[in-house]
Structures are given as C-alpha cells and as structure tokens.
Write a protein that binds this DNA or RNA. Sequence first.
DNA 1: TGTTAGTTAGCATGACTTGTTGATAATCAG
DNA 2: CTGATTATCAACAAGTCATGCTAACTAACA
Lengths: 140, 140
Amino acid sequence: MKAPEELVAHFREQGYKVTPQRQLIFRLLNGNTAHPTAETLYEVAAQQMPGISLRTVYQTLSELSAMGEVQHIDLGSGAVRFDPNVDDHHHLVCGTCGAVHDVYVNQTPLHFEGDVEGFAVHSTRIVFSGECAQCAHLSA
Amino acid sequence: MKAPEELVAHFREQGYKVTPQRQLIFRLLNGNTAHPTAETLYEVAAQQMPGISLRTVYQTLSELSAMGEVQHIDLGSGAVRFDPNVDDHHHLVCGTCGAVHDVYVNQTPLHFEGDVEGFAVHSTRIVFSGECAQCAHLSA
DNA sequence: TGTTAGTTAGCATGACTTGTTGATAATCAG
DNA sequence: CTGATTATCAACAAGTCATGCTAACTAACA
Ligand SMILES: [Mn+2]
Ligand SMILES: [Mn+2]
Ligand SMILES: [Zn+2]
Ligand SMILES: [Zn+2]
C-alpha cells in the first residue's frame, strides 16, 4: 500500500474527497501486519474517532481494494481480512490464536501435475495452517 | 472417499441409518471431480429423488466431513465446495467458468521465509487461479 | 413390530456484507 | 468564501450461506 500522504494525493486525483475518516483508515492500515477484518479495523478506528461508522470502513476498504492498494484474504473462517501488503507473499495461519503471518516462498512458480493442459495461471495463493510458537508454548 | 458400499457399512457400524437419501449422496459424490457445492449437489440429487431436502444434503455432507470422507474447500467466493478426493492435492480455479480442477504439487513441503520462528505447519493449501484452456479458446 | 432415528417443510437465526434513504456535514474548485 | 458535490451517518433492509428448531410423518433396523 502507498504511504498515507500518497494515498491522500491519489484520492484527490481520482476525484475522491479526502475526509478525516479515510485518512484515519489510511494511517491504521499503513504498515499493519495484523491482517485485520473490517470489524476489527472499525473497532480501532472508533477509539480514535468515535462516531465513525462500520459502513464507512467497509466503503473505504472497498475503494482501496479496487485501487489495488489492499488485498483481501478470505481464509474461509468468518470475515474477510484485509492486507496492505500487496507484495507476492503468502500466509501462515495459527489455528489456535487465529493470527495470520506473512511468509515468502521462493520455489515459485510451483509445478503441478494433473488433467489441466493449457491452464494459464495468473496467481497462486498458499495458506499454511498450524500452530504458532507462542500457542505451542502456552499449551505445553 | 470410500466407495458407496463401504460407506453404507461404515454408517451402519456407527449407528447411522442407511437411508435412500444418504445412499444417493454417496453415489453422487463417488468419483465426483466437480467440487460441487451443497446446492449444486442438491439440484442433481433432486432430479433423481424429488422431495429430497437441501437440509438433508447439508446434513449428510457434514457427517461425511466429520468422518473425513470429504473435505470442504472454501475458495472465498460464495459457497463452500465439497471434495470426495481426500488425497494430498491442491486446486486450480478458472476465474472465467468457475471450474475447479485437482492438481498435485511435488515440491512439498514448501520452504518459506518470514518472521515466524517455530511455527508448526499442519497443512498447506495451494490455490492456483487463472483461466482454463477451454475458456481461453472461447474468448480468442 | 416397536423403538429410534431420519426426513421434511417451514420458519428462524446468525454472521458477514452490501444496498438504500434522507438528513447533515464536510471537502474542494473556482 | 461560497456553492456544488460528495461523504458520512443512522437506521433499516436485503442477500447469501449455513445451521438450528419444531412438529409431523416416515422409514430403518433390531
Ligand atoms: Mn499478508
Ligand atoms: Mn479436489
Ligand atoms: Zn497462535
Ligand atoms: Zn474456464
């Protein structure tokens, strides 16, 4: 994701108004590695700006997503998570605490076998599931 | 997934009754590589057994899932898909026609880098997105 | 044949997300 | 500064997917 100041400029160029709500969301996403849901992002935002609506958070996330500034990650377990990291990376999910971590896989592009001649791969998504070190430690 | 006859035996052993509805679903799933949703499976089932309920299809799929006879695949786009193929395999998804194909990746376990020391990986899911040969052909 | 479990329809609930409306307020170009 | 445009908000609705519940009926299995 671009830095908040760049997003401000970009939004203005695109004819979007730069509101305090949008700017707050820019800041909250900047460098955010928590892979928050719209809801959790809303909760943090509401602490700094009581009165902001969940609807506006969803709205701004959609705009950023359409601009390619955030990606959304659907892990199939509840709400979609948003990720300001749009580099080519993958995810590690702890089944115990639910944390999502970024990881980078070098062996790409992967080779596969199957009855799928001529399939053109545009993107690859890898999700590793397991247990993080902290959770393993606590349960021991 | 076990063959329908084996499932019949297994269900009886577990104290589940072997109903025509369940048997139909066993047959429809057997060798099925379409990765159907509960809804699409229901539609096919209803042709052969008018009156069968969507509720029963969901129910039987849950039972089979709990038994490890089918896996469910959430691609993040709509309904969960069910897969009687429980081998270690991955998926190719055509963004145009929505088809899901099985593929096998040899390079596993994959290596990754990141700030995730001590994470214990239990499973890896890979989804390749792109366009299948047929769709590429039609759009040309 | 009787006990038990399954099925069905219908309706409800739940989570997540998006749409709508109408009033209010803020942004930004001129 | 001002006016036109857009955003926000609250409140409510709707949509999708999945599951829960009831009550009546039916079928399976011992
Ligand atoms: Mn990420
Ligand atoms: Mn499969
Ligand atoms: Zn954890
Ligand atoms: Zn296709």
